[in-house]
Amino acid sequence: MIEYLPYVITVLLIAAIYAIFSLGLNLEWGFTGLINFGHVAFFAIGAYTTVLLNLSGVPLLLSVIAGVALAGLCGGLLGIPTLKLREDYLAIVTIGFAEIIRFFLLNEEWLTRGPMGVHVFSRPFEELIPGDYNFFLFPFVLVVLVICYLLLEKLIKSPWGRVLKSIREDEDVPASLGKNVFSYKIQALVLGSMIAGLAGSLLAFYLQYINPRNFMPIETFYAWIAVVLGGSGNNKGTILGALILWTFFSGTRFAQGYLPFSPTQMGALRILFIGVLLIMIMMFKPEGLLGKKEELTLAR
């Protein structure tokens, strides 16, 4: 059994990173009702900013903070032209933004080294950790996840979170009670993007080497499936969703040997399955695994 431990730790580590990434989306979609189809852009911004700044000599912690801040800033800027209009504009604009970011990473070789990617220069406490770094990184990421979870739960249960939920159901009501709906939506989008940026930094620490292929559009929908499967608007559900997703993925790797499909076909099957799952949940169990039916406003 013990020989499987590094593998299990790695799967849990990835699941934890994606859980953080997905918590950001849950704040936007689950609690506020914003459709962000370009969440991966902020993941990428966080990862690249952290690595590139650190590489040019900025201390690691500062680089992470800058990555988080830049992700938040971009989120806010995308919200400005869209959030006063109909809800689907944000979806369209974010989807486009994520693609443009990816093309930017691919093409601006002077900055990002293009398709070659960038090696991670240093990782937190790397010099102090003997042996398998992932055995340190996993608890580290877990602590970050727990902190994110607690801070978000605190927010959601506060008057601030109440306003978000009221926006999700009918934004005329908070507006009639003096709440600046646009400002709250921007705040949710900025905070959600910052969390994605943080997850991006952590992903870079895990991968040690990042390139634009790590930030394909499908990453966004990994977060979507985690949120929707666990129950939109339920942070515990989101974490559970991320865990299930990555357990499933590692399971399919084992299944690979027994199925007559090429790796490409297996990859396609996985995403195909995610698409079907997304449709099925939205059609038949929109409250997800842990969501409350009574609070279901998004998927009526």
């Binding site: 801070l151 601030w160 939920k165 009221s166 999700r168 609070e295």
Partner: peptide
């Protein structure tokens, strides 16, 4: 707001609540 409780509906209304700002909550 049908997806909030009666009490939550009421608590939404007061203006300029401290807890409507992220920093104050934390």
């Amino acid at each position: 707001l049908t997806k909030l409780t009666v009490e939550e509906n009421m608590l939404l209304a007061p203006q300029f609540q401290h807890g409507e700002r992220i920093w104050n909550v934390w």
